[in-house]
Amino acid sequence: MTILLAVVLGALFGFVLQRVGATDSKVIRGMLTLKDLRLAKTILFAIGVSSFALFSGMQLGLIDAGHMSVKSAYYGVLIGGLLLGLGWAIAGYCPGTGVAALGEGKRDAVVYVLGGLFGALIYTLVYEKIADTWLFEKIAGGKVTLAGSEKYASLISDISPILIAGVFAAAFVVLAALLPRRVAA
């Protein structure tokens, strides 16, 4: 049943990515070059609404925080994030949109996905050599959340998690509303 749910949710996610234009590398490049902000507006709105729903659900006991997996923050994550962003800008895809574009049959997505798999293979092969280096030194205590978790340390612990989530959610939604759809050239 878990696999079936994952397949259904993955298919729905891919469908939504396709509908908002995230499987079109030109749309993504337009967002990253700040020329076409429609996708950025969608992403900001989705982050705002979903983060508020998540924190509210956790505070109301509807979502068990024990099911969340917070990954450790370390220097390698920062470098990996920069590399991911660079690849995203060059290719016009991130991992999710690249796979969805592959499902659409886009040829450039084939190259992107194969390149990503090759990069994962290289990382796997060199991991043992870099595992004990500064790349894996924890930042801010490792596993931390912004606010309100019984399981993990919080960066902000003196303020209600719903209030923090509400402020961030509102900021993201307002920013999404204020951004123009396109920037004049």
Score class of each variant (00 low, 15 high):
L86F: 14
E150Y: 11
A140L: 14
K129W: 14
G119N: 07
Y123R: 09
C94K: 00
Y75T: 04
A89G: 12
G148C: 01
A140K: 09
G85T: 02
R107F: 10
L78A: 13
T124Q: 11
A147E: 05
I139M: 13
L83H: 08
E137W: 01
A91P: 05
D108F: 04
G142Q: 06
I130D: 08
Y127M: 08
V70T: 13
H67R: 09
M68H: 01
R107C: 01
Y112R: 02
Y112C: 06
A91W: 02
V77I: 15
A100H: 05
A131H: 10
G85E: 07
A109S: 12
L86W: 12
G98E: 06
T133P: 00
L121T: 11
V70K: 06
T124E: 01
G96Y: 05
E104P: 00
L82Q: 03
F136G: 05
A91V: 02
L114F: 15
Y93I: 06
T145I: 06
T145G: 11
T145R: 04
G80L: 10
I79A: 13
D132C: 05
V113K: 11
G141H: 09
L135G: 07
T124H: 10
Y123C: 12
V111Y: 03
V144E: 00
L117E: 06
S72G: 13
K106D: 10
D108C: 08
G115L: 14
A140H: 06
G116R: 00
L146H: 02
V111D: 04
V144C: 07
G141P: 06
L84C: 07
A101R: 11
L135A: 07
S149P: 06
L121Q: 09
L125V: 13
K129M: 12
G96A: 15
G148S: 14
Y74I: 02
L135T: 02
I79N: 08
K143Q: 15
T133W: 00
V113L: 09
G141K: 11
L78E: 05
A120I: 14
G76E: 02
A109R: 04
M68T: 05
P95Y: 05
W88M: 07
E150T: 10
Y112N: 06
A131K: 14
L135D: 03
L86S: 08
Y75P: 00
I139F: 09
I90G: 03
A89R: 15
T97F: 03
G66D: 10
L135S: 10
V126T: 09
C94L: 13
T124D: 04
L82A: 14
K138P: 07
E128Q: 15
G98R: 04
G87C: 11
V99R: 03
F118R: 03
L121K: 07
P95K: 05
A73N: 08
G148F: 05
L135Q: 01
L135C: 07
Y112I: 06
D108N: 15
W134D: 07
G142T: 07
E137P: 03
L82D: 05
Y123V: 15
V110K: 15
V77K: 09
V70A: 12
L62K: 10
K129T: 11
H67S: 09
G115R: 08
L82T: 12
G81Y: 12
L146M: 09
D132N: 14
V126S: 07
I90C: 09
